[in-house]
Amino acid sequence: MQFKLIINGKTLKGEITLEAVDAAEAEKKFKQYANDNGIDGEWTYDDATKTFTVTE
Results as ranks from 00 to 15, higher is better:
E19C: 04
T55R: 06
G9D: 07
G9C: 03
Q2L: 15
G38E: 12
N8V: 03
D40M: 08
A26W: 00
T53E: 14
G9Q: 11
N8D: 14
A48Q: 07
T11N: 15
T11A: 12
T51Q: 13
T11W: 07
E15K: 04
L12V: 13
F3V: 01
E25L: 10
I39S: 02
E42R: 08
L12M: 08
E25Y: 14
T51S: 14
Y33S: 05
E27D: 13
Q32M: 12
E25I: 05
L18A: 13
I6M: 08
K29R: 06
Q32K: 15
L12Q: 12
E27G: 07
W43M: 07
A26D: 00
K13L: 15
W43K: 00
E56H: 05
D22E: 07
K50Q: 11
N8I: 14
K50M: 09
I7A: 14
G41K: 01
T11Q: 08
K13E: 09
K28A: 14
N8S: 07
K50I: 13
D47W: 14
G14H: 15
K29P: 03
F30G: 07
F52L: 02
A34H: 01
I16P: 01
L5D: 00
V21D: 09
I7L: 05
K10W: 04
V21R: 10
A34K: 01
A34F: 02
A23E: 07
E25D: 13
D47V: 09
T53P: 00
A26G: 09
Y33I: 13
I6Q: 10
E19P: 11
L12F: 04
D36Y: 11
E42P: 04
V54D: 01
D22A: 11
I39M: 08
I16G: 04
L5F: 12
D47R: 13
D47H: 09
E56F: 05
T17P: 15
I7K: 01
A20M: 06
Y33P: 00
G38D: 10
K28H: 13
G41Y: 01
E42Y: 11
T55A: 04
G9N: 15
T51E: 12
K50V: 06
T53R: 05
D36R: 13
Q2W: 06
E42D: 14
D46C: 04
L5R: 00
F30H: 02
T17S: 13
N37S: 06
E15C: 03
T53W: 09
K13T: 11
N35T: 05
A48G: 10
M1N: 08
G14V: 13
N37A: 14
D36N: 14
V54Y: 01
K29W: 08
G38Q: 08
I39R: 01
K13I: 12
D36G: 06
K10E: 15
W43I: 02
K29L: 07
E27N: 10
D47K: 10
V21Y: 08
E56T: 02
T49E: 09
G9P: 05
T55C: 02
Y33H: 10
I16Q: 07
D46Y: 11
Y33K: 06
T53Y: 06
I16C: 03
Q32Y: 07
L12E: 05
V21I: 05
L18C: 04
F3M: 02
V54M: 06
V21F: 12
L12S: 05
F52A: 02
A23F: 06
E15T: 05
L18P: 01
K29H: 07
A24K: 04
V21H: 10
V21N: 10
L18Y: 08
A23R: 12
Q2E: 11
T55I: 08
A26S: 03
A48H: 11
A23C: 03
E25R: 08
T44D: 15
G41L: 01
D40K: 06
T55G: 02
N35M: 05
Q2N: 15
M1T: 11
K50L: 14
E25K: 12
F3Y: 11
K4H: 12
D40F: 12
A34D: 00
E56D: 04
E25G: 10
D36W: 09
A26F: 00
F52C: 01
N37W: 06
I39P: 02
E42M: 14
A26Y: 00
D46A: 14
T11V: 10
E15F: 03
K13P: 09
D36V: 15
F3W: 15
G41A: 02
E42F: 15
A48M: 05
L5G: 03
D40A: 06
T51H: 11
K31S: 04
N35V: 10
G38F: 11
V21S: 15
E42N: 13
K13H: 14
F52V: 01
T17V: 07
V54S: 02
N35C: 03
T11L: 08
I6L: 10
T55N: 12
N37P: 01
E25W: 10
G9Y: 08
F52G: 00
A48S: 10
F30K: 00
T11F: 15
G38K: 10
A20R: 09
D36M: 08
F3H: 06
I7E: 01
T11H: 13
V21M: 10
G9R: 06
D22H: 10
Y45F: 08
G38S: 05
K50E: 11
A26M: 02
Y45D: 01
A24C: 03
G41W: 13
Q32A: 08
G9K: 07
T53K: 11
Q2A: 05
G41R: 01
V54C: 03
K28M: 14
K31R: 06
T44K: 13
I16Y: 08
L5Q: 00
K50Y: 13
T17L: 13
D36A: 07
G38T: 12
A48D: 11
Q2G: 06
N35K: 11
A20S: 11
K4C: 03
N35I: 04
T49L: 10
D22T: 07
A48F: 15
E19F: 09
E15A: 04
A20P: 01
Q32D: 14
A34I: 09
D22K: 07
E42Q: 11
K10H: 06
K28G: 09
N8Q: 12
T44N: 12
D36Q: 08
E42T: 10
K13A: 14
E42H: 12
D47N: 14
L12H: 10
A20I: 03
I39K: 01
T49S: 10
I7G: 03
M1F: 07
T17C: 04
N35Y: 15
T53V: 10
N35E: 14
E56L: 04
A24I: 08
E15D: 08
I39W: 06
G14D: 03
A24S: 04
D22G: 09
I16L: 10
D47Q: 11
Q32T: 13
L18I: 12
K28P: 08
K29Y: 08
K28V: 11
F3D: 00
D46M: 09
A48I: 12
L5S: 00
D22L: 03
T51P: 00
L12T: 13
E15Q: 05
K10S: 14
G14M: 06
I7H: 14
F30V: 14
A24Y: 14
T44H: 14
T53N: 05
L5W: 04
K28W: 09
F52D: 00
F52Y: 14
I6R: 09
K4E: 08
E27L: 14
N37I: 11
L18M: 09
T17A: 06
I6H: 06
K13M: 14
E56C: 02
T51F: 14
F3E: 00
F30C: 03
L18Q: 09
F3I: 01
T55E: 13
E42L: 11
D36I: 14
G14Q: 06
Y45L: 02
V54G: 00
A48L: 10
F30Y: 04
F3R: 00
I7P: 01
T51L: 08
G41F: 02
E25N: 14
N8P: 04
K10A: 07
V21G: 06
F30W: 02
G38W: 07
Q32I: 10
K28C: 05
K31L: 12
K28Y: 09
A24G: 15
N37H: 07
K31D: 02
